[in-house]
Design a protein around this nucleic acid. Structure first.
Lengths: 129, 129
DNA sequence: CTGGACCTTCCAGTGCAGGGGAAGGTCAAG
DNA sequence: CTTGACCTTCCCCTGCACTGGAAGGTCCAG
């Protein structure tokens, strides 16, 4: 299978697959005599895994770590668990920060509900911010 | 006042102030005969405004829009209100997406609580993801 | 008159996940 | 034999807000 066909099957682009190979997410592809990349159909499953990892909010570097462990012949379960835990903690923190920001902006917005341009000195640029 | 002193007063770096000037957040500074930037003390208030805008989650480009309106002699109140509304909507959406992602990962994590490597086929790389 | 602190410009890189496009090779159909 | 779709490598660009560093100029104290 050539790169374009694989890309379409996996719901991505040829450009992205070359990028994944360069990043070590896909092993260097076999080549046809003329130099075209030639993929086994199973490669699509690996790309699907990359997509599942992305859907779980993992970076390509983290997904690569999992694939490397698997390629070494080991089961990556524990590492996956650690990554999920770390990602979860990050997300909780991000949510907390966004919630705080939302509260801040909500308050600013309430103050700015009835703008009175005359009371805004140019020095402060905008008294609602 | 030279750039280093202004930077320290405003809690930032000389590098950043040059960058702000380049981005149009600060007007081109006056120059001493030898070419050094020479700032009026009021410039610090403008930098403070930039910081308040950032604290409200606005991008430098958005903050620049507000400053441009003010520099045109108008009061930017309404534009500020629109920006805050837009930012608020973005934040709500980001929070919702993160919450959904958190739920997804929480579920994955629960499934992976007691990893059974033997049941993970190398084909799927990791059955918990 | 020398050292060091400060300033100038310009170029380049950071992290993330690719995208755009040039210049050229390959392959099958018409 | 040519056209067009596909492939190859290569390098640069995107957004965001800076940051680092090189090469050189300025200013003040000792």
């Amino acid at each position: 299978m050539r790169i374009g066909e694989l890309a379409e099957r996996a719901g991505t682009t040829a450009k992205t697959l070359r990028f994944y190979e360069e990043q070590g997410l896909l092993p260097p592809a076999e080549r046809t005599p003329s130099g075209y990349r030639d993929y086994a159909p199973e490669t699509a499953a690996r790309i699907d895994f990359v997509h599942r990892g992305q859907a779980a909010g993992l970076t390509l570097a983290q997904i690569r770590q999992i694939l490397d462990i698997r390629d070494d012949g080991a089961a990556p379960c524990e590492h996956v668990r650690d990554l999920l835990d770390a990602r979860l903690a990050e997300i909780e923190q991000q949510i907390a920060q966004l919630a705080a920001l939302r509260d801040t902006i909500t308050e600013l917005r309430r103050d700015a509900a009835h703008p009175e341009p005359a009371t805004c000195s140019p020095d402060q640029v905008c008294r609602y911010l």
